[in-house]
Nucleic acid binder design. Structure first.
Length: 137
DNA sequence: GCCAACGTTGGC
DNA sequence: GCCAACGTTGGC
């Protein structure tokens, strides 16, 4: 299984919205690096749900329930989306500040490539962030 | 094919 | 609101 981090501005699509929807398409990616990551996602992969701009913290965990397919919100171009399901909220949301304060997370894409909206997360990073967030999974 | 200008994202 | 980082565009 692989791990990811997906970013959304709460104004556009919040974790609460994802929870209310249960399963929903993750659309609107218009960046080639992010697109490649979407295409690499497999059924059952898990992803941190990160709120950018407002909150700036990992607020929940989602699971890939449908692999990459053409993004219906894209009028043109090779863009894709996946479907994700809300698995559960982080008991203690992990903030960007907390991640930056943790030396073992200094290499996270979230820190190094702050503008990339779909990022890979290593198994070690995943385990550590889960521990910091109090996630029992 | 290079590079300057511009737009967008996102942290502060 | 500002600015740094990055992607895209367009002139040459």
């Amino acid at each position: 299984m692989a791990y990811w981090l997906i970013k959304s501005e709460p104004d556009a699509y919040s974790w609460d919205q994802q929870v209310a929807d249960g399963t929903g398409p993750w659309t609107g990616v218009r960046n080639h690096s992010a697109k490649l990551n979407l295409q690499a996602m497999k059924l059952g992969d898990r992803a941190f749900f990160y709120h950018s701009n407002e909150g700036k913290e990992i607020v929940g965990i989602a699971e890939v329930v449908k692999e990459a397919y053409p993004d219906p919100t894209a009028k043109e171009g090779p863009w894709v989306c996946v479907d994700v399901k809300a698995v559960g909220p982080m008991p203690k949301p992990v903030s960007l500040a907390a991640i930056k304060a943790e030396p073992r997370l200094a290499e996270m894409a979230l820190v190094k490539l702050s503008r990339l909206s779909v990022q890979p997360v290593t198994a070690a990073e995943w385990a550590l962030v889960c521990k910091m967030g109090g996630w029992k999974g």
